[in-house]
Design a protein around this nucleic acid. Structure first.
Lengths: 234, 234
DNA sequence: TTCTATCGTAGAACAGTGTTCGTTTACAGG
DNA sequence: CCTGTAAACGAACACTGTTCTACGATAGAA
């Protein structure tokens, strides 16, 4: 796979071997290839599994070599996040401000959810990235166009991003928990509570343990967006 | 401080020294004292500074001793979170459902913010704690009393908790960032963007970089609560 | 009082972690 | 063929959470 030509199939004659190490024909190490490798690990095992030695090993290289292309682990994860946000992309707008917002944040939720717990690095993502700026410009113009005051508009977008990020991160943590082992004991515990002191819980055990995570996300998104409607004048 | 009486000031006569080790009169190690020590570290340096050796050292003990009282580091941090949530407390209700919700989540935001980044451990906090159950029962009854459907009510509380948790965690990360070093460069960058392609940002640089974090939290909270009003029938 | 069982603490050890450093290597240009 | 440069290497440092064994003190029984 890493060999350059098919001539590598036949063993090299000794006089052709210039140095003692293996043929260095492998693809050059770049920040992009490092991000590729890190993203693959994040997707399957989460950001906690992204160690410098692990990523380096996946690239057939040693950990310290990564530091020539990436400042440190933190920056590497931020580069992975940026890659994912590019996959989210800049939203198309239709003129329906609420539908546009809902579509974008729903897509963001779906895309982020497909990449492990990388959402964790979207908390307090500052300074902003190029893709973040482009997205913000697009959505900000939508809200300003329908008469939302600038400060409210800017803050509201931040709130929606924060909410979406949190939902994805929590979803990942729940998914990577032995949740199945806990849900029945918790159901029993809820049901066993004294009904006179905990009537609301005892009477609604099933809805409390409902696992429809998409429905939960949508409810919060709808709450935020319809709360924003107060400020829309046009 | 750790001595039992003031007689410890004068050196013990040799015949009073029963065993070769130091006087074992120190307070016994308990889970509560371990949580005390961990909470103090979380408050001042964040959960990342909570290492088993560090906490043990603060208690005049060795790391492995902690494991007799606490299962592992994760559980210790969850105990710290539980302590903090007890400080938040079960809300008093007045009958004004929206004011009650706002008061509780505002208090939760204030209390959590006073304890470093412990909010991080409130993501996917499951199974629920005793204090969490008590809070949920109280707020759930408030929403059910004004006619919110059970599923909406239960989910909405979860959404509000998630939002509040996320706000606090992001706030901590922002506070522990060399934000002052970045805010001016970002302002310049925003202002330098081509005004024809980024009119919304260029025209609102100041509100985008507004640092009124309380106002931001309140806006999102109001959006969520007023979005919930749709479901209130009584 | 003496023996013994129990339990919490100590200390070493293991397998990791991010990051830095000086050295070696490989390739390109002269 | 030689040399300069840039990058990869590999060892090292100071940590991390956790486990295991052994020690020691305390409490109860004889």
């Amino acid at each position: 796979m890493r060999q350059k030509s098919n001539s590598a199939e036949v063993p090299l004659p000794p006089w052709e071997v210039r140095r003692k190490t293996e043929v260095p024909q492998r693809a050059p190490l770049t920040a992009e290839r490092i991000v590729d490798a890190a993203l693959a690990v994040v997707d399957t095992e989460g950001s906690g599994a992204v160690t410098m030695r692990r990523i380096a090993g996946d690239l057939g290289v040693v950990a310290s070599s990564l530091y020539a292309h990436v400042r440190n682990r933190e920056e590497l994860l931020l580069l992975v996040l940026e890659r994912v946000m590019k996959e989210v992309g800049v939203p198309e707008v239709t003129g329906q401000w609420d539908a546009d917002l809902k579509a974008h944040y729903t897509k963001m939720q779906r895309v982020l959810s497909a990449h492990g717990d990388i959402a964790l690095y979207n908390f307090a993502a500052f300074p902003p990235t190029a893709i973040g700026v482009a997205i913000t410009e697009r959505l900000l113009s939508v809200l300003l166009n329908v008469g939302v005051p600038p400060k409210i508009a800017a803050w509201a977008l931040h709130r929606l991003t924060l909410y979406t990020t949190a939902d994805v991160y929590e979803g990942w943590r729940l998914a990577n928990k032995d949740l199945a082992d806990w849900i029945d004991p918790v159901r029993d515990y809820f049901a066993s509570l004294p009904a006179d002191r905990f009537p609301s819980i005892v009477g609604n055990v099933d809805v409390m343990l409902d696992t429809d995570s998409d429905g939960r996300f949508e409810l919060g998104l709808d709450m935020l967006i319809s709360g924003l409607a107060t400020f829309v004048t046009d």
